[in-house]
Amino acid sequence: MCEGRLGEAPGRAPDLELLVEAVVRPLRLVAGPQQIRVGVDVVRVADVARSISTLGARYLERVFTADELAECGLPGGWAVERLAARYAAKEALIKVLEPTGAQPEWRDIAVRRRSSGACELVLSGEALRQAELAGVARLSLSMTHEGEYAAAVVVGWDTIAVVAVPDSPMLHDAPMIPVLDVRSYEERDNDGRANPRGAGTARPNAG
């Protein structure tokens, strides 16, 4: 497949296959280290109840979104423990973001209950901007309340960096590391179409 040498024909662009052979083939693309950020917060349910009692709508409407209030409303009152858990989630997210300046508005951080019953964080405005700035690509949320307290944990994952490293048998022996085999890219026909063997797409290396 790889006849001739680089630079053999003066004035011509180096053959793509030769470039692949010389430069790309010795490399493997691997997932780089991924930073995980964790934030946790605990809130006294009674403190939230007191805030509702003393500051009323000013507190509720400044801290919670309309959807959150709708999810935590009860006939004639509030499910205060749910509101407390949501406040804890907002504070936990702020700890994940580690803002160097001002923190986002609380309503830019919303807890949404999915149809499955699980809850997720939905960011907007300044919270979304700060998350993007921090490279946080995905968030997980867990909330709980028991008696006097409500708590939340938020985990944020950075985007996965893909780096090229020299190929090594050690990478083949690490099945837990998702390794993308760039050599499959060269298994294409001359028109760039993937060959019938299914090559041409980066595929996980099972080691």
């Binding site: 917060d41 809130v43 500051l55 801290v63 504070e91």
Partner: peptide
């Protein structure tokens, strides 16, 4: 002063 109490202080 807790973070939650600081919200109350801010509003007040």
């Amino acid at each position: 002063l807790t973070s939650h109490a600081s919200v109350n202080v801010m509003l007040a």
